[in-house]
Design a protein around this nucleic acid. Structure first.
Lengths: 202, 202
DNA sequence: GTCTATATCTCGATAGAC
DNA sequence: GTCTATCGAGATATAGAC
């Protein structure tokens, strides 16, 4: 790796840190340069201006930081106990989206969406990947006759809305909210039960 | 109304406009004062500093802008067709939360939640009011024997998650997203049907 | 490509007159 | 209470040397 590439990587890392901690307007190019141990003109020569720096760095971070739960989802349809497998899968998903760095990044993107609408597209696109993994699982369960899910994509949105999104929504407005012992498990399993009851075969 | 009160009101309105359009860090007290046609020291004499201005003005706006759907909810339990009444109620709720000013304010609050955690509490509190109206309706339906909803508060969160929150989530990351003809109605009614199937008596 | 140094501007906040 | 005028700090961005 050339010295220039190293500096670019250092700037990227420093910029993510500053943007996440202070927001777009609150982060200064000065501070980013200092944190990356380069001079300010080096930042500008690599990224042009502050807006492009933000878009490049945060957009890349969104894509790279994505946690692919596809392999876990693909086991649901073949599991001996689909309910347990579903709860397990959604539990893992909830764990990921409640991570503090994920939540902070999420709030940053939402807050800057008017200035950077492209980031909303990236976010939606990244999230769709895990949705699709579940869609495949439900299509398989439908085919096997275990469930009656004629519109798997809609069903997936309903299930994740009651579980993953509901948990994330709480922390979106209350970052310090501490879930009680068993509260998250109860939230997930009750959502799964509503879902399975509604989409039961017969 | 005294001249001082008029100026305070003008500052409040101007501050909401600037904060909503530019975010906390992006809005300047200069611009707020100019928009309110007062001098900067007048702003400071009324609100102390920028942070208190933001908290006071946005907090008040959140509380005042709240749309009380309680009366509409109280009709659900007595309606001849509870399903239709529920769909009607949630459709009105969706309409409110998708309004552009509501969405923009929501993104602003989320983006600044680390700096102003109190606003998250206000938001949660305001939203709980509409939740409680639905809780009352389900408790009544449970008592009547029309539904089997032993935990109405949990059930309300599940229903709103699939309908109101799901619609709002889409627009949160994609402000310009246009719902197709009938897409919102389908989203709401399918959510209601999942809910009613899962919580049917028997 | 990368640096030092700086131009230019705007910010939040306040002193002092009225 | 409200104004004009201004302070000091810190912002983005760039010129010019190497």
């Amino acid at each position: 790796m050339s010295a220039s590439e190293r500096k670019r990587a250092a700037i990227t890392e420093a910029a993510i840190g500053e943007f996440v901690e202070r927001g777009y307007a609150g982060a200064s190019v000065d501070a980013i340069a200092a944190r990356a141990r380069v001079s300010k003109p080096t930042v500008y020569s690599h990224f042009g201006n502050k807006e492009r720096l933000f878009l490049t760095v945060i957009g890349g971070y969104l894509r790279d930081g994505y946690t692919d739960l596809g392999p876990l989802a693909d086991r649901i349809a073949e599991a001996p106990d689909p309910r347990a497998a579903l709860i397990d899968f959604l539990g893992s998903w909830v764990e990921v989206v409640l991570r503090e760095d994920v939540m902070t990044l999420r709030r940053l993107v939402i807050g800057e969406i008017d200035r950077f609408p492209q980031l909303g597209q990236v976010w939606a696109q990244v999230n769709a990947t895990n949705d699709e993994a579940l869609v495949r699982a439900f299509a398989a369960l439908h085919k096997k006759g275990a469930l009656d899910v004629p519109r798997p994509r809609q069903a997936v949105r309903q299930l994740t809305a009651m579980t993953v999104d509901a948990a994330q929504l709480i922390r979106t407005f209350r970052p310090a909210y501490e879930f009680d012992e068993g509260e998250l498990e109860e939230l997930v399993s009750s959502g799964v039960d509503v879902f399975l009851t509604a989409y039961a075969r017969g």
